[in-house]
């Protein structure tokens, strides 16, 4: 990409002073706003729990083993995500597709397990309206689930459309996968806090 006057700089090359590319700074800003989004929901959880006379004990009401499995699934998908970036960084496009596919697959497994969990709740008529516990449980895990779906969609896009960009500008694809990875790790990070707070306390 020529560096003429009218093309945007620091897409691939990090800015000399800030040391980051545009996309990386952008994704970190976006993740900062996501911290505030989930922050508001955790603040709601804290208020509802401290404000209520009785609050159900996590392990007694929610399926901890299933959620533990889900946590491991999400952690594993974080690893495959970063491995897919590392493979790209060393130019191994085949391994990158393998790991990225695995990441998307793990994401789907997470959602399927979540589906079972929700299904089980609905069968026993534990709907969000049942109590403020179930309300914040469904809202928190539901919004997190939407973020997982978003992440899977992005990963699938790169899985199928990655080759085109790989031929044209490998460094740009590597940067984009790194940003997609940052988002995915953030989604895993949110679950790492969600899991103990909802399921174990």
């Amino acid at each position: 990409m020529s560096e003429s006057a009218s093309s945007i700089r620091y897409i691939n090359r990090p800015h000399p002073v800030t040391g980051v590319t545009n996309a990386k700074l952008g994704i970190w800003c976006f993740l900062a706003s996501e911290v505030m989004l989930f922050g508001a929901l955790f603040s709601t959880y804290l208020l509802l729990r401290t404000g209520s006379a009785s609050w159900p004990h996590g392990p007694a009401t929610l399926n901890v083993p299933l959620a533990t499995l889900n946590t491991l699934v999400l952690i594993f998908s974080s690893v495959t995500m970063v491995m897919s970036w590392a493979s790209l960084a060393t130019g191994n496009f085949r391994k990158y597709r393998l790991y990225l596919g695995l990441t998307a697959l793990m994401g789907c497994v997470f959602l399927v397990v979540k589906g079972f969990e929700y299904g089980h709740k609905f069968e026993h008529h534990h709907f969000p309206a049942a109590s403020t516990f179930y309300a914040i449980y469904f809202t928190l895990t539901g919004l997190h689930g939407l973020h997982v779906i978003g992440g899977i969609a992005v990963n699938l896009y790169f899985l199928f459309r990655g080759r085109v960009l790989w031929q044209r500008d490998p460094e740009r694809l590597t940067n984009r996968i790194e940003c997609a990875g940052l988002y995915w790790h953030f989604v895993d990070l949110v679950w790492i806090f969600l899991f103990p707070i909802l399921y174990l306390l």
Partner: peptide, 9 residues
């Protein structure tokens, strides 16, 4: 960036 997300929540 930082003030809008809580309202979205």
């Amino acid at each position: 960036l930082l003030a809008f997300p809580p309202l979205e929540a």
